[in-house]
């Protein structure tokens, strides 16, 4: 693209100065400190991997890694499928669809914090309305967030209640960009709904799917709020995700090196995801 060369050489630098300084201090700064903290120890001089060794020999860490992975493996496909179906539904041209579209957006306006606070009360074993409702069908009360069997699933559902509304917006934006002439042509050729869906819509939305997949994975690896408010990592560590473990290490056990190691591992995971995404996009040209 053509850009302007100007005589006042300092002007562009002045314009980018505030954001550059802020990014360096508040973004690059923490990345650098966490890396340096993770490879230093009060017991050893200079560079050391002792913190990582300690972390890797710790069962709690491996449990957290497993919980984080398990959560992602369930949550990401669930959210992508539900969000895509919701987008397809509100993209239908029927009466009153804009009202439904707006309603579907609303959970996104409720922060994850508030969503968790609300759902924690709704799902409560003693005074929760969900258990009260299930009582109609003679189902015994369930400790959604206090029972080891259900806690992770409940966290996933709380996140998805809000998350699906958010990711739906991306799919809807993608669907709006699809040329409707293609559908008409396919209809005339006698293609059914599912044929059109799998042969036209989904291939055309490949970029959107890839973006949502990557953004959703990144966000979920950093999931913290519903665990901190909803379950505090419990019961029995069944929802103790990596972010929460890093938070506890730093602020409950004052073990900064351990926390830094986990943060660095999370940053590496995010970096890898970004590289894979760029490769996938570049592959298409």
């Amino acid at each position: 693209m053509q850009r302007i060369h100007i005589k006042k050489k300092w002007l562009p630098y002045l314009l980018i100065l505030p954001t550059t300084v802020l990014i360096c201090v508040f973004k690059i700064g923490p990345i650098v400190t966490s890396i340096s903290e993770s490879v230093q120890s009060s017991k050893v001089d200079g560079f050391t991997m002792v913190n990582y060794k300690l972390l890797f020999s710790d069962k709690t860490f491996w449990n957290s890694t497993w919980v984080t992975l398990k959560m992602n493996l369930i949550m990401i496909p669930l959210q992508i499928v539900v969000a895509f179906v919701m987008a397809l539904l509100v993209n239908a041209k029927v009466k009153g669809i804009t009202v439904f579209r707006t309603i579907f957006f609303i959970p996104f306006c409720v922060s994850l914090t508030i969503s968790t606070v609300i759902w924690r009360m709704l799902l409560n074993i003693n005074d929760g309305v969900v258990n009260s409702f299930l009582g109609l069908f003679h189902i015994d009360r369930i400790g959604f967030l206090t029972d080891k069997r259900y806690a992770l699933l409940s966290v996933i559902l709380i996140c998805s209640w809000r998350g699906c509304a958010y990711w739906m917006m991306f799919f809807l934006a993608g669907l709006k960009a699809v040329d409707t002439g293609l559908y008409e042509a396919a209809k005339i050729d006698g293609c059914g709904f599912f044929q059109r869906l799998f042969c036209i819509t989904i291939p055309l939305l490949k970029h959107t799917f890839l973006f949502v997949l990557v953004a959703n994975t990144t966000a979920n690896f950093l999931l913290f709020t519903p665990v901190q408010i909803g379950t505090e990592g419990g019961p029995l560590g069944s929802t103790n995700v990596l972010m929460y473990e890093a938070y506890k290490a730093a602020f409950s056990y004052s073990n900064r090196p351990r926390s830094s190691c986990i943060v660095v591992i999370l940053l590496i995971i995010i970096g890898l995801i970004c590289i894979v995404q760029n490769k996938a996009l570049a592959g298409e040209g």
């Binding site: 990014i23 201090v25 508040f26 973004k27 690059i28 700064g29 923490p30 990345i31 400190t33 966490s34 903290e37 990144t218 966000a219 950093l222 913290f224 972010m243 890093a246 938070y247 730093a250 602020f251 900064r256 926390s259 830094s260 943060v263 999370l266 940053l267 995010i270 970096g271 970004c274």
Partner: peptide, 18 residues
Amino acid sequence: MLSFMVPFESTAIPLYGI
């Protein structure tokens, strides 16, 4: 680009030190 790619949450804990 970096600030775009690295989500805020990922650096929040070490940011506290700064």
